[in-house]
């Protein structure tokens, strides 16, 4: 039939154009990370892996994530519960507020931390008096990362919490369960996939955060340098090989994040069918 023939022609044209665009913008640059990192085999990669500044950057990146992810998870759960389980004036406003860290440039986020805790900032004199170092040290990096990733958990948990409904929680309450028991036994199991997804996104963004961190860290090698900062630093100093060794680690993290996301999405879909 002419109709289906024409259909096929348009279909392949559209797919072709989309793939070419995606290749130029996405696929070739992504592939490039892995090719450049392992161009001379895995030897240089492992050699770079043993550099002390590189190791320190990995440690610091992981350490910041270990602080930020749990804190933002607890906050995200609380905010999600407040929003999903209550009707109150300003609820829509609160939801929009949660989006502010997404909308604000990471550089502006970093600037705000500097203006609060820096030498000329609001808390500057107090902090100096007590000899507490926040800006150009780890605390500011934690604060900036936490600001940027503040909405992720709440954003993912709110819809699943709304969908789960509060019937089971009320049943548990009537049957005499305490608040904590209800949370651990009833609420948490029903939101676990959404929660996990939010945690994974928070982790990926924390480990990969660059703009906000580069404002507040001072980028002191071996002290306040995270992996994303290491990538830029190495590239600027024409150590392209080292830059790509760090980049491939971060790219690997991104791929793992996407694979987990795909798995979690299928899980939630299967649950919906049940």
């Amino acid at each position: 039939m002419t109709l289906s023939k024409e259909d096929g022609w348009v279909k392949y044209l559209l797919i072709g154009v989309a793939i070419v665009f995606l290749s130029l913008i996405l696929f070739i640059p992504a592939l490039n990370v892995f090719v450049q990192a392992f161009e001379k085999g895995i030897g240089p990669f492992f050699h770079n892996l043993t550099r002390p500044d590189f190791l320190h950057a990995i440690k610091l990146t992981v350490l910041i994530a270990l602080i930020v992810v749990p804190v933002n998870t607890v906050f995200g759960l609380c905010a999600a519960w407040v929003i999903a389980r209550n009707q109150f004036r300003g609820r829509a406003f609160l939801i929009s507020l949660l989006d502010v860290p997404f909308a604000v440039s990471p550089v502006v986020a970093g600037l705000m931390v500097v203006l609060l805790y820096g030498r000329n900032g609001w808390f500057g004199p107090f902090l100096q008096e007590h000899d507490i170092k926040i800006v150009f040290a780890m605390p500011a990096m934690v604060l900036a990362s936490a600001f940027i990733t503040l909405p992720f958990v709440a954003r993912e948990v709110i819809p699943v919490l709304e969908e789960a409904g509060s019937d089971q929680e009320e049943a548990a309450k009537i049957l005499g369960a305490g608040d904590w028991q209800i949370f651990w036994r009833v609420t948490l199991p029903s939101i676990r996939w959404g929660l996990m997804y939010g945690v994974i996104l928070t982790n990926a963004r924390t480990m990969g955060e660059f703009g906000a961190i580069s404002v507040v860290s001072g980028n002191i090698i071996g002290k306040t340098q995270t992996l994303p900062l290491f990538v830029e630093q190495a590239y600027k100093q024409y150590e392209t090989e080292a830059a790509f060794s760090a980049a491939v680690l971060l790219a690997f993290l991104a791929v793992v994040t996407l694979v987990l996301k795909e798995i979690l999405e299928r899980r939630t879909q299967i649950k919906e069918v049940d």
């Binding site: 990969g208 660059f210 900062l229 590239y235 980049a247 790219a251 991104a254 996301k261």
Partner: peptide
Amino acid sequence: AAIDLPFALPTSVAGLTLATV
């Protein structure tokens, strides 16, 4: 699934690879 890569890939890695490519 790859459409989400720009979400997940740290921006400095994106900058590095785009600058090289």
